[in-house]
Design a binder for these strands. Structure first.
Lengths: 150, 150
DNA sequence: GCAATCTGGTTTCATTTTGCTACCAATAGC
DNA sequence: GCTATTGGTAGCAAAATGAAACCAGATTGC
């Protein structure tokens, strides 16, 4: 699961990312973690996922360095799952998925949960893909160099 | 598959997005489409996926309005699969996944494919989550309003 | 114009993953 | 101590996945 080299495409960063979080539950677990869920039971109630599946996903995410298992913050003997820096770096991915979903899966005016700026309570600005010198880029303005040495 | 209300979380845009593209192959198909793949055989060779699975995924993506089946651009009788506007709107998602992958799954100097600005051949700027008034936001600077009427 | 090949699938079947339910040990509350 | 909650595991049925064989229509070579 963690090292799943199913095809010869592994020099692509997108493929490695998808390998790490590209299944139905993992992304939603990460989303819940951003929303403040920490405990096994919180994830389980929020997602309605079977417990054995949740166990497996949490283990994979911990093994992948996306979540970390830490002592519970309430002083009890239980554990909590919190995002590592690597996990927090998924923020733009979650925001991108959220904005795409808002735009394409809800009728105008249809209610949905909303991610807002804590300071002002406003919706976020739409993500923009930009060049190194700051121009806004559309898909057609970019191209993939097959291999590069960073 | 298209309407898979597996849990009561469907007012969340992230969940609907993940429902549409959140499996291993769909995101990679979309990535390939951004990279210029159009034909069944191109996707199949690029991904190494079983043909029956690819058939199913392409059908789901077309049904979801992400890809569109159009007559082949070379004048032959075959079909091609191209991104719809809704599919092209996934660009920030793919870029976010790519940048996260570059950052966390490659050793410094390890070669990988790279998405570059076509005009200058430079790497893209890292995506930034910003508030409506332009401040850069970290995960902790945001919060989720459970329900909102757009 | 005919055979050979290529494209884009479908079918079949074995394997893997998922998900539901029941169960269970350790902890917490009282 | 007794009971409820937390955080799992075990067993099993159903669904998804994947490999391989097969196939029809389009295209190419000659």
């Amino acid at each position: 699961m963690v090292t799943r080299t199913r095809f010869d495409d592994s020099e692509c960063p997108v493929a490695r990312s998808v390998d790490a979080i590209g299944d139905w539950w993992s992304l939603l677990i990460v989303r819940d973690a951003f929303d403040g869920s920490r405990r096994f039971g919180e994830f389980q109630r929020s997602l309605g996922v079977a417990k054995n599946i949740l166990t497996a996903r949490l283990r994979t995410l911990v093994a992948g360095g996306i979540l970390e298992s830490v002592p519970a913050s309430d002083g009890s003997a239980y554990r909590e799952y919190v995002l590592t820096p690597k996990g927090k770096a998924l923020f733009p991915v979650i925001v991108a998925l959220r904005q795409w979903g808002e735009e394409h899966f809800f009728a105008p005016g249809e209610p949905h949960s909303q991610l807002v700026d804590r300071r002002q309570g406003h919706r976020l600005r739409a993500l923009e893909v930009r060049s190194a010198d700051g121009r806004r880029l559309n898909p057609d303005d970019t191209t993939v160099h097959k291999i590069s040495t960073q």
